[in-house]
């Protein structure tokens, strides 16, 4: 750097200073007024109430008025509110609003990296099967019991757990407990018209390997849930067939 340029700098060049430049003056640290901090806290609490309310509202609307709100609305609203809350925390509690631009750039770049991370993993997962079919199913083990090394595991873990329970406690006890358990979390485990438990999801039919294909047949056959289960299954089959066609067209095969 030449001297002529150095003199144009805000801080004068000083050869006796090991860092080259004098710091002329200094900026103070911002003290955020407590009114702002408290206001942000109240806003965060209000948004928490709002996000809980909107999650409940979907069920309520379907039950009371028969409104069918699509599942994605719930996701988009919940994530939108979370983003607003996160922005408030970052701007005021973490004081990025008053902070140096470099720290802001650091955070934004990190968020960009997060986006890359999730997007590229999703693209990879979605397209593995397009090159070699056998790669498509690789990730589906885990819950299904495939590849699980535990004594007595010959099928999906949920069936193993059920069979072990029936062996120890008997069928009647199982049926009794089943109802008790399902009552504790809403009394419903299978999708109905009133619940937003979408069977389609966003990427339907992704990685159906055909392993444990007939799992649902004997498992859904219990008590009151039986009829619902049958409906859900039919819906599932038709939905997955439709989407299989869509995927086919989109894939351009």
């Amino acid at each position: 750097m030449s001297h002529a340029q150095a003199h144009n700098q805000p801080h004068a060049y000083d050869p006796s200073d090991p860092h080259g430049f004098h710091e002329e003056g200094h900026h103070g640290h911002v003290i955020v007024p407590w009114q702002i901090l408290l206001g942000v806290l109240l806003a965060l609490l209000a948004f928490t109430v709002l996000t809980v309310f909107q999650a409940q509202f979907e069920k309520y609307a379907a039950h009371e008025w028969g409104w069918q709100i699509p599942g994605w609305v719930n996701v988009v609203l919940a994530m939108g509110i979370a983003c607003i809350k996160g922005t408030l925390v970052v701007m005021y509690f973490m004081q990025l609003r008053y902070d140096k631009g470099l720290n802001v750039i650091l955070l934004l770049f990190t968020l960009f990296a997060v986006w890359l991370f999730i997007m590229f993993t999703a693209i990879d997962l979605n397209n593995r099967g397009h090159i070699t079919d056998w790669r498509a199913g690789e990730i589906t083990s885990g819950g299904t019991g495939v590849g699980v090394r535990r004594e007595g595991v010959t099928g999906p873990l949920i069936i193993v757990a059920k069979d072990e329970y029936i062996k120890d406690h008997g069928e009647a006890e199982y049926e009794h407990e089943l109802h008790a358990h399902h009552a504790t979390h809403g009394g419903q485990t299978i999708s109905t018209a009133q619940a937003s438990r979408s069977r389609e999801g966003l990427t339907p039919g992704l990685f159906s390997t055909g392993v444990w294909e007939h799992l649902g047949d004997d498992h859904d056959a219990h008590g009151d849930a039986h009829t619902d289960g049958a409906h859900a299954e039919e819906a599932d089959h038709s939905a997955s067939e439709e989407h299989a066609d869509e995927n086919h067209d989109a894939g351009g095969h």
């Binding site: 885990g142 819950g143 699980v148 757990a161 485990t189």
Partner: peptide, 21 residues
């Protein structure tokens, strides 16, 4: 018995992939 992966042991589950959840 609502445990992750191989430790899963909940007999009243309804979905195959619940251990992943």
């Amino acid at each position: 018995g609502k445990r992750p992966g191989v430790l899963f042991n909940y007999p009243f589950a309804s979905e195959t992939h619940e251990p992943i959840w």
